[in-house]
Amino acid sequence: MKILFTTKGMDWNAMMDPRFGRADFLLIYDEEKDVFKYLDNRDIEKEAHGAGPKTAQKIFDLGADVIITGNGPGGNASAVLEKAGVEIFVGAGNMNVKEAYQAYENKTLEKF
């Protein structure tokens, strides 16, 4: 499984970013290969409109199976992710990435 986190930083100890479309970083963890990658999403700040679908599309291109985030995507982004068949878990906005992953493993995160 490839698991994507919306984060404020670039490693396991980084805080989660509760925002979806305007998240600072997209961190992707490949469980099988046990590798970590990140994508700097901060250029989204320049966009007045459509941050949600744009970020959703980046996530699709990254090939994520699961998204772990805080508040959850809005309507447009949800439509993209639903088409892409990505599972979304919310409520991890105040955790760091490690805690968010554990919460996901323990199935304590809410499914969007």
């Binding site: 966009e47 409109h49 459509g50 679908p53 744009k54 959703a56 699709f60 439509a79 993209v80 088409k83």
Partner: peptide, 23 residues
């Protein structure tokens, strides 16, 4: 199309193109 749209109202998703009329 998605490169030319300044408003991210068109998204290419693999084999599909999605249009967001509100954007």
């Amino acid at each position: 199309c998605q490169k030319n749209c300044n408003f991210h109202a068109i998204i290419q998703l693999g084999q599909q193109i999605m249009v967001f009329p509100e954007l």
